[in-house]
Design a protein around this nucleic acid. Structure first.
Lengths: 221, 221
DNA sequence: CAGTTAATTTTGATTAGTCAAAATACAATA
DNA sequence: TATTGTATTTTGACTAATCAAAATTAACTG
């Protein structure tokens, strides 16, 4: 069975492949994500390649094989179900569940996982709006706009936050920009590199374009 | 911080010291409990002694220091709170929570632990009736009789089961001898080495003396 | 195209935890 | 008391994961 370490390498590869759109991840980047020195990543990737979980092209980078992808999705499923469980059942704040889930995802049994899944009513997204892969390893990424490219002055609902860092999430919490919230983008200023958000009953809020891009939204009917 | 392995050694030492009454555990026994070869136990115990968690007397055995005892109690607290949580909140059967708790006890954060504790209303015993140590590392073992030495033909309540093995617990489940159940000991036969139990509305049940000793009871008012 | 630079890989060492098997110590028995 | 047997300890080796630092490769720059 895959160790926690192996699971983490695969998970990071999956997330990186999907957030960059590139299907190959350079070793330096992987080392950075895993917080290890590059030599360690090289050694690990060779071992993963031997197990058939990744394809390794020396000096170019590494990509997941279908088997590695499956395993990564399974880890992600655990992670996201655990996060939702901690929020919905245990009463944790959604901004503080990430690290706890990071540990739990490697130790909970299949039985507990499925129990959590049914306790939560087979949810499709976690507290950040990230989609939860199915037990069979399928996951759907619904196409979505963000604050930077959604229609101006139209009511939209926040559906997903693309940054999991506690500091950012605490900021999101304070502003009240939680998933599910309805807002509208009142203005964009390319020169100031900023986007202004209107929240029912609050004064307008201005974010950098980079920060604004972290909020995925869908139109409100 | 102590690794899972270290935590498990300390926990086993604690349990063994308390279930045998002896304050020193022979290396062979420790190796057996940890399912490692004796040499491994020796090596580990030396390391634990260097960290001040145990006192090691070569060729005699090993005992916990106060520091080791504290740590063991903390692990036990986690284990037992997790077990109760799995039963009460997650809906697991009490006979199947042990292994799951065995893993979880090493990874849940202090914050999650205290959250679970308050969610459960600061319970004092786990689903098997084992006492839950406090956050400060205190634990009370209420004096209790068992089926072998409690008064005959008096109603008593089962308060604790001293064997955690799934197979035994499933048997307990089937017979309905769960903690909380009220029964009476109808007969003891030293020659047959047996004890008979009377359960409201069921036919009498006969156990070996050894099995009967695993049920702790208290008198019903 | 030669030289510099940056990324990557290699090499050698380390730590935690383990096993197999040889060596040792001790207690009991003849 | 010498011998036997059992528990324990020691020794040497292994695996997974890591780091530091040296060596290599490839790409860019003048």
């Amino acid at each position: 069975m895959a160790s926690s370490t192996v699971e983490n390498y695969l998970k990071q590869l999956y997330l990186e492949e999907h957030s960059t759109g590139k299907s190959i991840v350079p070793m330096g980047r992987l080392a950075e994500l895993m917080k290890v020195v590059p030599g360690t990543a090289t050694a690990m990737v060779k071992a993963l390649a031997d197990s058939g979980l990744v394809r390794y092209s020396p000096r170019a980078g590494v990509r997941l094989t279908p088997a590695g992808n499956q395993l990564a999705l399974h880890v992600l499923r655990r992670h996201r179900l655990v996060e939702l469980f901690l929020v919905k059942i245990v009463g944790f704040d959604w901004s503080e569940v990430h690290d706890e889930a990071e540990e739990l995802e490697h130790v909970i049994s299949e039985k507990l996982l499925e129990r959590i899944d049914s306790l939560l009513g087979h949810p499709t997204v976690d507290p950040h709006g990230d989609p939860i892969p199915t037990a069979g390893g399928h996951v759907a990424y619904p196409a979505a706009d963000d604050f930077v490219n959604c229609p101006l002055r139209r009511r939209v609902q926040i559906v997903r936050i693309l940054d999991q860092q506690p500091r950012f999430l605490q900021f999101v919490n304070q502003c009240g920009l939680l998933p599910g919230t309805r807002v509208q983008v009142s203005e964009r200023n390319p020169q100031a590199d900023s986007v202004s958000i209107l929240l029912e009953g609050k004064s307008p809020l201005t974010l950098s374009t980079a920060a604004a891009a972290k909020f995925q939204v869908k139109p409100v009917a």
